[in-house]
Structures are given as C-alpha cells and as structure tokens.
Design a protein around this nucleic acid. Structure first.
Lengths: 225, 225, 225, 225
DNA sequence: AATGAATGAGGTTTCATTCAT
DNA sequence: GATGAATGAAACCTCATTCAT
C-alpha cells in the first residue's frame, strides 16, 4: 500500500513536525494516496487511519479536506471517471468517420482501463453494490461512460445509412459493448504482450461484424490501417 | 408439569434452547441464511453476529460449521456459481444445433442472473476486489462460467464449417460475450417488461451478426422460432 | 471515580481472564459502576471506556447490556428516580392527616436528596438541558416527582376545608415547592449538622405559613410533635 | 444558531481577510456569539471551532482573547449573571416599602429568566455539574443571586416589625425562595400567556402567606395594585 | 452439539489546542 | 494581531473470534 511518506524533509531540517503544505497541494497529495489505497484495498479494505498514515498526515487533516470517508471516496472515483470520459471523448472526436469514432473510443477506453487496472476494478465494479453517496456517484459515472458509448454507436449507425436505432436498442447495445470492452480488458491481462490496437480490434469486430460474420471471413478493419 | 423431554419440542413448548438439528441440516439452513445476508449486504455489510441471529443460532455454531467468515462466504459463493454452471450446461446440452447451444446458454445465463440479481451483483463484484480465499474462489467461479461459454463458442463455430478458432481468440471472444451478457442483464433492469428471450436475442445478434451486420438487415434468429 | 475492580478473583485463581458473571449479575454490577461514574462526572464527563475500565469489563460488554451510552444513562437515571418516587409515595401514604402527608413527603424527599446528593445533581438537573432520549427520560422523571407533590398538595388543601385548587394553581404551587425543597437541600449542605426534620420543617413552614405568616408568629407544626 | 457573520465589509471590499477590529470590540463580538452558542448547545455541545466560525474569526483569535474554553465559558456566564444581579438590585431599590422590594426583586428575576430562558438553563444547570474554573464561577454567580434575595428578605422582615431573622434562617429562606422562583419560571413555560406579574404574584404569595394561609383567604397584594 | 459471556483490536469521527507564517 | 495548517488524544461503537460451561 505504498507508504509514500510525503517526500520527507526536503530541507533536511530535523523537524519533529510534518511539512506544512498549502491547502490545495496537501489536498492533491492526500487524494493521490487515498486513490491508490482504495484501488488496492477497496472501500471497506481501506481505513482512514491507514490512508492518513500513508499520506504522512493525521486523520483530522483528512477530515478537514474531505467531509467524510464517503466524500473522500467519491473524490477518488471522480479522479478516475473524469479523465476516462475526457480521454474517450477526445479520442472519438479526433476520428473522422463515424465508425472510426467508435473504434477510437473503444481503443481509448481499453487503453485507459489497462493503465488503471486496479482502480477500475474497484471504482467501477463497486458501483454495482455500494450504497449511499459514493454508490450513487459511482453508478452515475458508469452510466456516463455507457452513455458516451451509446452516442458513438448512434453516430456509427449512420455509416451504413441505417435509420437511427431507437433509444432502447441503442442503450442495450451500448451496455453489451461496454461489458465486452471491460471483459476483454480483463482477458487482456492474460496476454499482456498483445498491443492495445489488436485487443481493440477484437472488440470492434465482435461488435461490428459479429462472430458469425467473422467465421464467414467478414472483418472490420480500422480506417487508417 | 415437567416432562423429561428428550426430543426437540414437537410439542411447541417454549423451550429456551434452540432446536437441535443434525449437522448437515443445520449447515444447510445456516448457509441459506448467510447466502441471503451476503446477497443483501455484501461481505463487509454482513456481520457474523447478524447472520447468527438471523439463522437462530449462536456464533460459535457458525464457527463450528465454517472455519471463518471467509469460509462461510466462499461456501455461499459456491451456492451461486454451481447452480448457474449446471443450468447453463444443461440448457446447452438440450439444444440440438451448435449455435442453438450458444443461444440456449446465453438465454439460460440471462435468466439465471435475472433470478439472482442481488446475489450476482455481490458475488461477482466482490470477485473483483476481494482478496484472500474468497476472492480466489470467486475468481475461479467466474472463470469457469467464461470457460463454459468458450466451449459453446467452439462448438458453434463449427456451424459455419469454419476451422476451430485458436484458444486465444476463442477466449477473447468468450470474455467479450460474458461481459456483454452481464451488462445486458444490467440494462434489462431498466426494461423489466422485456421477455428473457427478447433480451437474449439481442445478445445473440450482437455476438453473432454484430452491429454492422444488423444495420445491413442481417439477423440471427433462434432455431426453434 | 471509584475503580471498584470487580471484587477480583474470589477463587484466587491466577486467571488472566476476567471473572465470568451471569448476565443479570453483570448487568447490575455494571449499572452500579455507571451510576456512580455519571454521578461524579455527568454525562459528557463520563466515557464508556472509563466506565468499562471502572467496572473491570471491556466496552463491548457495556454495549451488550445496554444499547448505547444514552441507554445506559437512562437506566442509571431510573435507578435514582424510581426509588425516590417510591420512598416519597410510601412515606406520604404512611401519614394520617392530609397535611401530614405533605410533610412526610417533603421530609422523605429531603432525606433522599441528602443521601444521593451527587446523583441528584447530575440526573435531575441535567434534565433541563440534555436532549435526546436521556433528556426525555430525565424530564419525565422530574415531572413525576413534581406531580407527586401536586397530589399531596391537593390532599392537603382539604385540611382547611378549602375547595380543591384548580389544576393550574396546584401545579404552580407544586413547582414552587419542588424548587424550594431542592434549594433548601442545597442550603443544607452548608449546615450539615441540622437534622432532616429541622430542615423539612423550614420548607413546610415556608410552604404552609409563608414568611409573612412566620413573622407574625404563625407556625406549622408536625402532627406528631 | 445565527451565524451573525460580523456584518463584514461595510465597504464592499472583496477582502479575503476578516475585518480588523480593535481588541475590545472584537472581544465583545466574540463573546456575544459564544454566549448564544453555549446557550443553544451547552458547554459540551459547543465546540470552539463552531464558535469561531459563527463569529467569523479563527480559532487562534479565540485563544488570544480567552485563555481557554473554560475561560470563554466563564466570561459568558458572567454575561448572564451580572445583568441579572443588576436588574434585580435596581428593581428592588426602586420600590418603596420593604416587602415591595422583595416583590419587585422576584418580579424582576422572573422577567429576566423568561427573557433568557435558554441561557439560564445552560448556565444554571451546568453550575451544578460542571467542575473546574467555570463550575466555580457559576456556583459563585448563583450564590450571589441567592444572597441578594437574602438581603431583600431581611429588609422585608422589618415590615412586620419582627426582629431580624438569624443569618442561617434568612439564608434557608432565601434558598427556598430562589428555588421556588426558578421552578415557577419553569412552570411558566407551560402557561406562556400568563403575565409576568401574575406569575410573580404566585411566588410572592407562596413565600409570604404560604399555602395554608391562602386556603384561609389570606393574600398578599402588591403595594401598587 | 451448543451456549452465554467475554475480548482485543479496530472503525469513523470530533475535539481543544498550538505551531509557523 | 491574525491566519491556515496541523496535531494528539479521545469519543462512541462494532467486529471477528474464542473461552468455559
């Protein structure tokens, strides 16, 4: 659980007191430690005491920066969800064709998940069962990710000149896709030498052509390959 | 009136002592209560005291039947995973064509998840974050489910007379499929009036024809419909 | 704060574990210690830890016997209020003339207060400001004491063949009397050599004849003097 | 608990720093806030942080003005006791006949209590249980009130041309009277529509004529009625 | 086989107070 | 004279677990 004892005493001063940081900086540091701690141990597996120790501060500091354990946890979850959304959105926007956007989105999400494996597991899966404030926040985050995929799907369906799918179908599909992405990411752990693109390509083909199609030799290929 | 009663209270006498059950029966009963309790509150949300009380048993009895909280939890997880595997396997075996087997498996799993929503969430989520003995057990259970899907996929691929996909691809696909099933099950919660078959059909088409295929009017239909 | 370390080891056994007591007995013992602790330090001045230590048990035992600190406190308050009510009521009932009953009641209450000075201060005076469950319990206890005085006053008013005073007046009077009793009890602390009867006589004359009456030489004298 | 945020910045200046007040003024303002806070929540229910926030001041300022929480609390208690003494004394002095002085004193104290109900409860109740410096201060304050009543009683006793009662008796009587006043004030809360004079009249009759006297039709009436 | 009593460690949260600037 | 950051101690309460019967 990496102690990360606040890069102690840059001055070398033999102070018995902890380094004094400006509020914003301390908050950032504490958040980083808490983020890692929750990622490693989950909500119930991380105690405020342990987090405080790992951050090299005392518990009251935690509480002066974050209202409660729930609050701290939510802040950590945001730390993960926001960048992920940003990244997926940004990647999708950069693509030119609609199905290229979906492809870029899937790729981006896979990369992101791979880079934040531990956190992802905790913050995203916990969303399902956790109650109270953090549960709600997490569920919302997850829903936003899926909604983003739904948007990409909608755009992509235009590729084929097809009429836009009804919201219900689009959402069902987005859920399926989201699940596929997540689980393939988990599969990826067993074959770490695979390139992100290769993994994403599997998902994309799964989603776009289907397994039956693939057995018939139909494949989807990324626009720029 | 003080009868020397040797057999447990068939008389309805308000005995202050608990009924004495044969070991196996007691274990079963305790397990059922624990299963429900974990399903409702998760691992950290269920205390041994609460489980004992709910089961009408004292704590030492819990510990005499199950080594620890982890042991009890693992036993409960098995309670979920075993029947699920059995059901999916059985349903698949009953189908006649290979892709019919995949279809039957997906349908069976979806139904099972829907029927055990609360438990599924808990035991499957916990699989991700929980450490120690129960975490391992859960992860194994989950892997077995995915492996079963992989088998079904392998069989189904023969439908198209295609060469069997390499293990690696088959597993990737099975993971994607598993994720799709789980997430569509979650989507299902928003549209509870949908029939299980309709939901399974979405997954099957997603997996078999792909979204691109569907936009071109290709669909997979169940063999017996 | 009297350690009262659980009459250690009647058996002389060099057990490292605490003596095991039957539930009822342990409860009584814990209650006694808590009662004294609250009396000495008030609600906020007594911690569950301190009480547990003083009782020679661990905190969970406290909580297994009493639901919470509030619950324990309420139980302690009852320990004081119930006997007091009983004693005053019993004393009053034993008297023969109506004003003799009031006299007996005042005397009994004064004696009781003197015998339980510390507790009285805490449990009765705390009634005014404490909120929550214990506050309510205390306020009720106090109200019952005053109501008992009101009854005695009602009876006493028949002595003079006067019409029964309206409830409102009777209550006002009972409050005044109650306040007088309590404060005279406090005055008593400065003159501890005074006999209880002498003190009660002051209150009774204050209440019955009034100061103006006394300056005119009117006095009330107890029936059996 | 009225934030009363020190009506900052009459100038509208968007200063991030608190207004700089002369020491005496700041002290007064802080005291007022603390007084209200203690009145609302009692000693243990009011935290230094909360008081500081409510006063729009930082905690170190609190400590620079008042040595400790105890010190602040004592200062607040004085805020109540001093004006009360002044008011009773002043009212008494304004009366012309000796028993009129007692009457005026009782009336003034009742009015004062009614106007400061919350504080009265806190500072007077706490006097009984609280230890340390503030407990002593409070007890002293209370004693001074009683002593003042004792003086008024002494004067009043001259009305009847009676010899001055010995100090001991006078004090006993003053205590009884003080208790009666306080408790009748509490009774008053149940009958808020009663005028202060009517309430005070009850106390005065109680104290002067006694209940027995009243049943015989003797009453004390205020000199100017 | 089962019980009631007990424990030690740990959970989150809040407090009065004080440095260092 | 005032601030923001920080602390250590302690509060209430709950948990998994185990004796002794």
């Amino acid at each position: 659980m990496e102690p990360t004892l606040s890069s102690p005493s840059l001055t070398g001063m033999p102070s018995s007191h902890r380094v004094r940081l400006p509020r914003a900086q301390r908050e950032e540091q504490v958040l980083a430690v808490a983020y890692a701690s929750f990622a490693a141990g989950g909500y119930d597996g991380s105690s405020m005491s342990a987090i405080a120790d790992a951050a090299g501060v005392t518990k009251p500091i935690l509480y002066s920066h974050f209202e409660s354990k729930d609050g701290l946890y939510s802040a950590c979850a945001d730390q993960l969800v926001e960048p992920m959304l940003e990244r997926v959105e940004h990647a999708a926007r950069a693509a030119e064709t609609p199905d290229g956007q979906l492809w870029a989105g899937i790729l981006a999400q896979l990369e992101f998940i791979a880079e934040h494996r531990a956190e992802w597991r905790v913050y995203v899966r916990d969303a399902a069962t956790r109650g109270g404030t953090p549960g709600i926040a997490l569920a919302q985050g997850r829903r936003r990710v899926t909604a983003l995929l739904a948007d990409l799907i909608e755009l992509a369906s235009e590729t084929a000149g097809a009429p836009p799918p009804p919201e219900m179908e689009r959402d069902a599909f987005a859920h399926a896709l989201q699940g596929a992405v997540e689980q393939v990411a988990s599969w990826w752990e067993t074959y770490p030498e695979e390139a992100a693109e290769a993994v994403a390509l599997r998902v994309m083909n799964f989603a776009w052509v289907g397994f039956g199609g693939m057995t018939e030799g139909r494949y989807w290929v990324p626009p720029d390959y």
